[in-house]
Computed example of a mutant assay.
Amino acid sequence: MLYFCVFSGFLLALNALFPTQSDDLGVAAEGLKGAWRSYMNWNGRIFEMLRVAYIGAIAPSAYFVILNTFVAVAFIFGFFIFIFARLPQSFDDVVILSVLLLIVMYCSAFGSIFLWAVGSLNYLWAYCALVYSFIPYRLFWARYMACESLSKDSSISKELLKALALMLLCFIAGMGSEMVGITALVVHIGFFIYALYKCVRLPLWYYVGFVALGLGWLALYLSPGHAARIAVWWDLLGRNSIYTLGDILSMSLGEQITHLSKTYRAFFSLTPYMLCIPLALVLFERYRAGMKIYKI
């Protein structure tokens, strides 16, 4: 708890001290009319619609500083649960969370994603919703891999309530990000195949969340605003500046590999950190375990 208080204070200071981005100045709260205009003409992401409708108007104020800090802390906290399938418990977990924050801050886009309204709502808030929509599935498979019982007695009303809550969360998550959304759907399909192969009985909420995620992603990808924004970028930068899903599927395998290598080339500089830091954490954990055995 102390760590999250310190972490919250750190992010709160960053949000308060950094000046408001020019794109966040002068944004009016246009309500549902503004959200619909964004969906039809520019951006179908649900959190961008929320920004245009309400949040953008408070971006220069202290209210957004507090709200954005809360979402950032929730994202880091949720990401830890998603990775380890448990709550933070020890000093080692604090080290892992600190390293995670350092990796995030190493990226050049940290400020535009964590501190300003345009980037925060389009990415940070969207990724936060996605992470929390993944957690029930992560915990479900964690229990299965640990050979724990998955069939817990529950009333129909509770099961329906879980399904409805996850349906809403997954639909919002699906409308949050084009790239992460389609990746999540592919991973879900892989787990469905695994569950079919292993004869794993999946609960109602599992199916409902998957369908809602898919519907949310389709609502985003097929939005008129999405197509309009792509057309603008094509006019400005050329047809090869943005590839649609249809463009990628029409490529040959070699062209797809070349395209992916170019797309993810920007992440190559992070590779040493992504490899060395987990290795260092594993070695540190083994060292601590060895010290405990020695003391005994």
Rank of each mutant, 00 (worst) to 15 (best):
W42N: 06
I83C: 11
K152F: 15
L169P: 03
F18S: 13
F7D: 06
Y287R: 09
N41S: 12
F18M: 12
N41V: 10
S38Q: 08
E148L: 15
Y207N: 08
C276H: 07
S223C: 09
A57S: 12
R229Q: 11
P278F: 03
L150S: 05
S133E: 04
S155D: 06
S252V: 12
T258E: 08
A212V: 09
R239F: 15
G111D: 09
G119M: 05
G238E: 00
G216F: 01
L202N: 07
R286M: 13
F84I: 09
L215R: 02
A212S: 13
I113D: 04
W36F: 15
G254H: 04
R45L: 15
A62N: 07
V94L: 02
S223L: 04
K33N: 11
F18N: 11
I296N: 10
L245I: 14
G290T: 04
V104T: 10
L202D: 02
W36H: 14
G238A: 07
I83G: 06
N15F: 05
F10A: 10
S154N: 07
V6F: 13
A280P: 02
V27P: 00
L185V: 09
R229Y: 05
I277M: 12
T271W: 10
Q21K: 10
D153M: 13
L115A: 05
V52P: 00
L185A: 10
G174M: 01
A165S: 11
